[in-house]
Design a binder for these strands. Structure first.
Length: 480
DNA sequence: TGAAATGTTGGGGCG
DNA sequence: ACGCCCCAACATTTC
């Protein structure tokens, strides 16, 4: 605390801009609100104490490290870094500095909502004002309901409604003229959060991603200028780079969904644009559900799945995690995840279907692994996606919709480009056989240098038999 | 934002 | 020329 006090050389009342999932200056309503009330002290608090089971995973921490560095640079090195229980830290800060007010954009994870409610009481009791804004969603989940006043449980009407209330555009908040507080912390304070991995496994992440607001802006620009028009037609093709790759930027709030929405409409990208906007609406939908059903991240939304006979099978789970199931598309996806911290959406669906249906392993195990590996790990989206595939979620795929990873592979990676990128041991197999090496003749395999069970495994489950097993399991718990 | 089983149709080979 | 069979191609149903 002494270092805090010493750094104060100015008694001007301060407004704290508490950065959370909004690591940007552009279109940041809370930052604008803070700037308009005077001298701003920008603060970030790494609060692992309140996150519980949802403490940020390894890949996300890597991203956060770099994003904080960029944000700090854009704030002339004035970003104030704290760590620990946010309420305690804010109270300490307010006691040490002349803080008049704390402003932030809302978050919607149950643990954050609970914590923030406490802070909204505690700060005023300590004589500090608070103000909250909406900076992470198109619309506040609390403002949206069906005609009967209940939360939406089906995507299509939710989507339709969102289009009517949000189109044609929304105003972006203007980047403020910031008057930053004249106090600084010692250098190296971001490094001290120890967000970067101790053993350097982050080479692939570095190569794939550039965290930060500037990168988010150029990524959106690039997407809208080059591939948005073809997004609808090409987004499912695994080897194409037709997707926006904005998910981690959106998750950390390096760009606002509001701006993405607006810029996409103005780009007039036809059905490619519509289709992309629709994805943005899926994001809103998962936040809507998490907000209204705080159990959504941990529990089956459809309660009949509580009796589903999931298998405990650590060995198979491990093979799935490391991309050694013997099913090329599943392994390619899992290796992409491990190497880059992200996975093509089509591959997410296929790998998740394989885990929950062919392997009959609980979606929570899959969600936990993704949570740790994804740079875009997002409680709302990740939980929603897993429950959607597993069939236990709101407006989910019906359980019997089992993906056949070989057919998906042939359809969405016809020339095996994606498979070859992630499975070099199979790269010499001809297109015809790369999707299912165990079905290739021994001559073909020899020619390509593939030795089953030696340099590439046979499938750990029979696809047809495991599909039948899953359907049988589902029939035992089904309520009609 | 499925896959597989089952049903239907129509062209072509062939006795 | 005709009926029959095969089977690809497409449509429908079921899980």
């Amino acid at each position: 605390m002494n270092s805090l006090l010493e750094s104060v050389d100015d008694p001007t009342p301060l407004t704290v801009m508490w950065f959370r999932q909004d690591l940007r200056l552009r279109d940041n309503p809370a930052l604008c609100a803070a700037a308009s009330s005077g001298t701003v002290l920008p603060v970030y608090i790494l609060d692992d104490e309140n996150a519980g089971a949802w403490k940020m995973g390894g890949a996300s921490r890597w991203w956060l490290h770099h994003s904080l560095k960029r944000l700090d640079e854009s704030l002339d090195g004035r970003l104030w870094i704290l760590r620990g229980d946010a309420e305690r830290e804010l109270l300490k800060l307010s006691a040490a500095l002349p803080v008049r007010k704390v402003v932030w954009n809302l978050c919607y994870e149950p643990w954050r909502k609970r914590r923030d409610e406490g802070i909204e009481k505690a700060l005023p009791e300590a004589g500090v004002e608070t103000e909250t804004c909406n900076g992470s969603l198109l619309r506040e989940p609390s403002e949206i309901s069906t005609r009967t006043g209940k939360p939406y449980g089906v995507f299509t009407p939710f989507h339709r409604y969102l289009l009517t209330i949000t189109a044609p555009d929304r105003t972006l908040s203007v980047p403020p003229k910031l008057s930053l507080a004249q106090c600084t912390q010692p250098a190296g304070r971001i490094d001290k959060l120890e967000l970067k991995p101790r053993i350097p496994w982050d080479a692939g992440l570095k190569q794939r991603w550039t965290p930060g607001e500037a990168s988010a802006q150029s990524q959106l620009r690039k997407f809208l200028d080059s591939s948005a028009g073809e997004y609808n037609a090409r987004r499912d093709y695994l080897a194409d780079e037709a997707v926006s790759s904005l998910s981690p930027h959106l998750h950390f709030g390096e760009i606002s969904p509001n701006q993405v929405w607006r810029d996409t409409w103005s780009a007039e990208a036809g059905d490619g644009g519509d289709s992309f906007i629709r994805q943005l609406c899926w994001r809103e939908f998962s936040y809507h559900l998490l907000y209204h059903y705080p159990d959504f991240a941990g529990k089956n939304w459809k309660r009949e799945f509580d009796e589903f006979p999931w298998r405990e099978d650590p060995e198979s789970l491990h093979r799935w995690q490391e991309g050694a199931t013997g099913v090329p598309l599943v392994d390619a996806g899992m290796r992409e995840l491990w190497a880059t911290g992200a996975m093509h959406n089509r591959a997410r669906m296929v790998t998740a279907s394989f885990l929950t249906k062919n392997l009959l392993i609980h979606w929570r195990h899959g969600a936990d692994w993704f949570w740790d590996c994804l740079v875009d790990a997002d409680l709302a989206n990740n939980s929603f996606g897993w429950q959607w595939v597993a069939g236990s979620g709101a407006d989910a795929a019906p359980y019997f919709r089992v993906f056949n990873p070989v057919l998906q592979s042939r359809k969405f990676d016809p020339d095996g480009k994606y498979l070859r990128r992630w499975l070099p041991e199979l790269s010499r197999l001809p297109d015809r056989h790369i999707h299912a090496p165990w079905e290739a003749g021994s001559g073909v395999l020899r020619e390509a240098g593939v030795r089953l069970d030696e340099n590439y495994p046979r499938p750990i489950v029979d696809l047809r038999a495991s599909r039948e097993r899953a359907l049988a399991a589902w029939r035992t718990t089904r309520r009609t």
